[in-house]
Protein backbone atom coordinates (compact mmCIF):
# COMPACT_ATOMS: atom_id res chain seq x y z
CA UNK A 1 0.00 0.00 0.00
CA UNK A 2 1.01 3.62 -0.45
CA UNK A 3 1.59 6.22 2.24
CA UNK A 4 2.83 9.75 2.19
CA UNK A 5 5.57 10.24 4.79
CA UNK A 6 6.84 13.78 5.29
CA UNK A 7 5.44 14.62 1.90
CA UNK A 8 7.13 11.71 0.07
CA UNK A 9 5.25 8.80 -1.42
CA UNK A 10 6.27 5.41 0.08
CA UNK A 11 5.25 1.85 -0.59
CA UNK A 12 4.95 -0.37 2.47
CA UNK A 13 3.52 -3.86 3.10
CA UNK A 14 -0.22 -3.96 3.72
CA UNK A 15 -1.10 -3.91 7.42
CA UNK A 16 2.13 -2.11 8.31
CA UNK A 17 2.00 -0.59 11.80
CA UNK A 18 3.55 2.71 12.82
CA UNK A 19 6.28 0.83 14.69
CA UNK A 20 7.06 -1.25 11.59
CA UNK A 21 7.17 1.86 9.42
CA UNK A 22 9.69 3.51 11.72
CA UNK A 23 11.80 0.37 11.68
CA UNK A 24 11.59 0.24 7.87
CA UNK A 25 12.81 3.85 7.70
CA UNK A 26 15.56 3.14 10.26
CA UNK A 27 14.27 5.87 12.54
CA UNK A 28 15.13 5.82 16.23
CA UNK A 29 11.77 6.04 17.94
CA UNK A 30 13.19 7.85 20.97
CA UNK A 31 13.89 10.86 18.79
CA UNK A 32 10.57 11.31 17.03
CA UNK A 33 6.88 12.04 17.22
CA UNK A 34 4.45 10.73 14.63
CA UNK A 35 1.35 12.41 13.32
CA UNK A 36 -1.14 10.40 11.27
CA UNK A 37 -3.64 12.30 9.16
CA UNK A 38 -3.23 15.38 11.33
CA UNK A 39 -3.58 13.61 14.68
CA UNK A 40 -0.73 12.57 16.95
CA UNK A 41 -0.14 8.83 17.11
CA UNK A 42 1.07 8.42 20.71
CA UNK A 43 4.17 6.27 21.10
CA UNK A 44 2.30 3.73 23.22
CA UNK A 45 0.05 2.96 20.24
CA UNK A 46 2.79 2.51 17.61
CA UNK A 47 3.00 -1.27 17.90
CA UNK A 48 -0.73 -1.82 17.32
CA UNK A 49 -1.69 1.09 15.09
CA UNK A 50 -2.10 -0.27 11.55
CA UNK A 51 -1.74 2.17 8.71
CA UNK A 52 -4.10 2.38 5.77
CA UNK A 53 -3.74 3.12 2.07
CA UNK A 54 -3.30 6.85 1.48
CA UNK A 55 -2.43 7.75 5.06
CA UNK A 56 -0.52 10.99 5.48
CA UNK A 57 2.23 10.78 8.08
CA UNK A 58 4.52 13.33 9.59
CA UNK A 59 7.58 12.11 11.44
CA UNK A 60 9.28 14.94 13.32
CA UNK A 61 12.30 15.26 15.54
CA UNK A 62 14.08 17.98 17.49
CA UNK A 63 16.67 20.19 15.82
CA UNK A 64 18.70 23.17 16.96
CA UNK A 65 16.63 26.32 17.38
CA UNK A 66 16.23 29.49 19.38
Amino acid sequence: MHLRVNGELREVPAGCTVAQLLELLEIRVRHVAVERNGLIAPRATHAELELAEGDELEVVTLVGGG
Partner: peptide
Protein backbone atom coordinates in the same frame (compact mmCIF):
# COMPACT_ATOMS: atom_id res chain seq x y z
CA UNK B 1 14.85 23.40 20.53
CA UNK B 2 12.87 23.38 17.29
CA UNK B 3 10.59 20.70 15.83
CA UNK B 4 11.25 19.65 12.24
CA UNK B 5 10.59 16.78 9.85
CA UNK B 6 12.94 13.84 10.33
CA UNK B 7 15.26 13.49 7.36
CA UNK B 8 14.31 10.11 5.98
CA UNK B 9 17.23 9.67 3.62
CA UNK B 10 19.96 10.11 6.20
CA UNK B 11 19.35 7.44 8.82
Amino acid sequence: VAVRRERLIDS
